[in-house]
Lab assay of single mutants.
Amino acid sequence: WLKDDEATHCRQCEKEFSISRRKHHCRNCGHIFCNTCSSNELALPSYPKPVRVCDSCHTL
């Protein structure tokens, strides 16, 4: 799980985070992405409801 202060850019699109481009953790891989690159939800065994995942984890 990557800490918020360790990420300054989206792991996928590499756009810089700002007040309007917020950080979101993928609940599967733990990396930090922008909203555009992590707008999917997936049912994971460790969560009772579908949770936010990055595009890469969603296509696995």
Rank of each mutant, 00 (worst) to 15 (best):
Q12N: 09
D5Y: 06
R27Y: 14
I19L: 11
T59K: 14
S56T: 15
H24A: 06
K15A: 03
T59H: 08
E6V: 06
S38W: 06
W1I: 14
L60A: 13
H31V: 02
Y47T: 11
S18F: 05
H58L: 09
L60S: 10
E16A: 06
L42N: 05
C54Y: 01
K3G: 03
C37L: 01
S39D: 14
C29L: 00
H24P: 00
N28D: 08
C13E: 01
D5P: 03
L2P: 00
K15M: 04
S56M: 14
C57M: 02
H25F: 11
K23H: 05
S39C: 00
A43V: 12
C26E: 02
T36V: 15
K15I: 09
L42D: 14
F17V: 02
T8H: 12
L42H: 14
R11Q: 13
T36M: 15
H9N: 11
G30C: 03
S46L: 14
S46G: 15
P45T: 13
C57K: 02
T8C: 05
H9V: 07
T59Y: 08
S38E: 00
S18I: 09
R21Y: 01
V51N: 02
E14W: 06
K3S: 03
E14P: 00
K3M: 04
F33W: 03
A7V: 09
K49H: 09
C13L: 00
H31N: 06
K49C: 09
H9A: 14
W1C: 13
K15G: 10
C10F: 01
I19M: 12
C57F: 01
S46D: 15
H9I: 07
P48N: 05
H25D: 08
D4H: 07
T8M: 12
P45I: 08
T36N: 15
T36H: 15
L2C: 05
R27E: 13
P45K: 13
R21D: 00
H25W: 14
E6F: 06
K15Q: 10
E6T: 11
T59E: 12
T59G: 14
I32R: 12
N28K: 07
R27S: 12
A43D: 12
C57G: 03
S18H: 04
S20R: 10
S20F: 12
T36K: 15
E6K: 14
S56W: 12
K15S: 10
L2I: 09
K15W: 03
C13V: 00
P48S: 07
V53F: 02
R27C: 10
C10H: 02
T59C: 11
F17D: 03
T59S: 13
C26L: 01
V51T: 14
R11W: 15
L42I: 15
N28S: 10
K3T: 08
F33S: 03
N35P: 15
E41F: 06
G30I: 02
E41R: 08
E41G: 03
C34N: 01
L44Y: 06
K15L: 08
N28Q: 08
Y47M: 09
F33D: 02
A7G: 10
I32P: 14
G30W: 07
P48Y: 02
R21E: 09
F33I: 08
R11A: 15
W1F: 09
V53D: 15
K23I: 07
C10E: 02
N35A: 15
L44E: 04
N28T: 05
L44R: 03
A43R: 11
C26K: 02
N28W: 09
I19D: 11
C34A: 02
S46V: 06
T8A: 07
N35Y: 13
E16V: 06
R11Y: 14
K23S: 08
C34P: 02
E14G: 12
I19N: 12
V53A: 10
S39Q: 13
L44D: 14
H31K: 09
F33R: 02
I32W: 15
A43S: 08
P50N: 11
D5H: 04
R27G: 14
K23P: 03
N40C: 00
C13D: 00
R22N: 06
L44T: 09
S18W: 05
L44G: 08
K3Y: 03
Q12S: 04
P50R: 08
S39P: 06
F17Q: 01
A7C: 10
Y47A: 12
C34Y: 02
K49I: 05
K23V: 06
S38H: 03
R21S: 05
N35H: 14
C10S: 00
R27V: 06
F17T: 02
T36D: 15
I19F: 09
C29T: 01
S39K: 15
K23T: 07
S20D: 14
Q12G: 14
R21N: 01
Y47R: 05
S46C: 09
Q12F: 03
D5I: 05
K23E: 08
N40V: 05
L42Y: 08
D5M: 13
E14L: 04
C57T: 03
G30L: 09
C57I: 00
C57R: 02
E16C: 06
H9G: 07
V51E: 05
P45D: 11
P48G: 10
R21L: 07
C13M: 00
L2Y: 13
I19T: 13
P50L: 10
E41H: 07
R21A: 11
S38F: 02
T36Y: 14
N28L: 05
E6H: 08
K23A: 08
P45W: 06
D4W: 02
H9L: 06
D55N: 00
S38K: 02
K15Y: 07
C13F: 01
K23W: 06
L60H: 06
E6I: 12
L42A: 14
E14C: 06
S18M: 07
N28E: 09
Q12H: 06
S20T: 13
P45F: 07
E14A: 10
L60Y: 04
C29D: 01
C54I: 00
A43Y: 04
E6L: 04
C13A: 00
S18G: 11
D55T: 02
C26A: 02
H24R: 04
D4E: 08
E6G: 12
D4Y: 08
A7E: 12
C57A: 01
S38Q: 04
S39H: 04
